[in-house]
Design a binder for these strands. Structure first.
Lengths: 261, 261
DNA sequence: CGGTTGCTTGAGATCCATCAATAGGAGTGG
DNA sequence: CCACTCCTATTGATGGATCTCAAGCAACCG
């Protein structure tokens, strides 16, 4: 079944078995880290790219006034930064949320495989487009959505991203974030996250308890949260030359490769 | 004087004259467009990368509830999207704010020059790091800064970015945004932007009228706005000792102010 | 057990949105 | 040059969404 990273990249280009072997070959140096530890520290120079293999991580910034803002959530298969460059100075913190297994990819190695295969390059660029879209959508949420909408939107997004790597089914998914984490991701207070969560619960849309998220009515939740998955750039790659696709407009029942193919 | 794009990229890598010639060669197909027109429409497939040569543009999204959120501001020299990929479906609108001159860069051409020169590739990746940093910082602003801080932060950022391309001096810069634009960029209402602007004015920090921004006390403004330019990844490239730079170097106040160093 | 962490609830305060009205400037056409 | 209109900036009054402070509770864990 390959790993989460490869699995996700299959949505961005039609990788050959050789491509996948090349990608898997990058994952030599793996590390494991406990929950709630910093992986990269702001101000230092990272020596390699971080690829999350298992567990959840986040990028965050601490303000001088003591507030914290989570700027990105990283799930298994996610690359914590653009694949073609290492900053000389990390401009935000990277931290584990639960126990995380990650790989440190040397920039040169990644560059090599991407130059060696146009399909890998295409897939990596597709991933970067998706990450950029996620960032824009976060800006939209923070700027123009109510607390409940932001919350619903985040849940929809995480659920869908987890589906891409086989970590969610139609019912729901694991959900290791605390309400304080959610608050820092959505620019709210934990108290208000709690109340918004109760709104969603009492509307019968979700259950969230004990690190497990259940979505009772995905379409209704997406509608309530103004969630339109178009920004994730899915549904673009033909899986099989003779698999015919009706030009799918992205909204309701998006069809993604959640199967192991 | 070269063009704004090349000028900005010199901050990311030590480009040779040949590199700069290659980059300038990309700017063949130029277009001009009036103020407040859409350049790229959400849902369509762009055929080339858009590079702003003159004027200001923005990326925005319209929500189903009628609200608008500006997700990015593009200044002269800015590439409106990552340099290595074209989305099959544009996920946000791109529009001019004032009269804009822009170039349509074929993806293949850009790819070619970046593969032909490691310095160009390095500069383009640096630019992408900067754009990503800008996006993260916007998230921080929207999530955890007050209206006045957001506003001050935006003004500091735009002023600094304009300085990179020679369009601002220590005093200030042209500023074509309306208060409604600012509101859509910062997740506020025009009314509240107006009031926050008056706070900054009455504190003696800025003047803003008639499409012109004046910064009376940059350090005080940066302090009030919690502005730390580290996220722009500047100040990294050593000058080529032989290459006499005719243009204005960074002003003293522009030196990265964070960790003493 | 006691301490810690995360969740929940209540009451009151604050920031910002909303609604509404006025005023100034820029363009336009007569 | 004036009347007109549109757009932008401004101001006031009110309301609402979210924050802050504070306390209680449950689960977990050494």
């Amino acid at each position: 079944m390959g790993d989460r990273f490869v699995r996700k990249l299959r949505n961005g280009a039609r990788l050959t078995p050789e491509d996948e072997t090349l990608l898997l070959g990058l994952l030599h140096s793996q590390r494991r880290i406990d929950a709630r530890r910093d992986i990269l520290v702001e101000g230092t120079a990272p020596r390699a790219l971080t690829l999350i293999l298992d567990g959840w991580a986040c990028g965050y910034r601490l303000l001088e006034n003591g507030k914290r803002q989570i700027v990105a959530l990283y799930l298994p298969g996610d690359l914590c930064g653009p694949f073609g460059a290492l900053p000389r100075r990390q401009d935000h913190m990277l931290a584990s949320l639960n126990q995380v297994r990650f790989a440190a990819l040397p920039l040169a190695a990644l560059r090599e495989v991407s130059q060696g295969s146009p399909r890998i390059a295409e897939a990596l660029w597709w991933d970067l487009l998706m990450v950029a879209g996620i960032g824009r959508e976060r800006i939209v949420s923070l700027g123009r959505r109510t607390a409940a909408e932001r919350l619903g939107h985040l849940l929809c997004e995480l659920h869908l991203r987890l589906q891409l790597v086989g970590l969610a089914d139609d019912k729901g998914c694991e959900f290791p974030l605390t309400q304080a984490d959610i608050a820092d991701a959505l620019g709210l207070t934990p108290v208000h996250v709690n109340r918004s969560l109760q709104d969603l619960r009492s509307s019968g849309l979700i259950s969230l308890s004990g690190r497990r998220l259940t979505l009772h009515d995905l379409d209704a939740l997406r509608c309530a949260a103004l969630f339109d998955p178009a920004y994730l750039h899915l549904g673009g790659v033909e899986r099989d030359p003779n698999h015919r696709r009706s030009e799918m407009p992205m909204s309701p029942s998006l069809r993604i490769s959640t199967d192991g193919r």
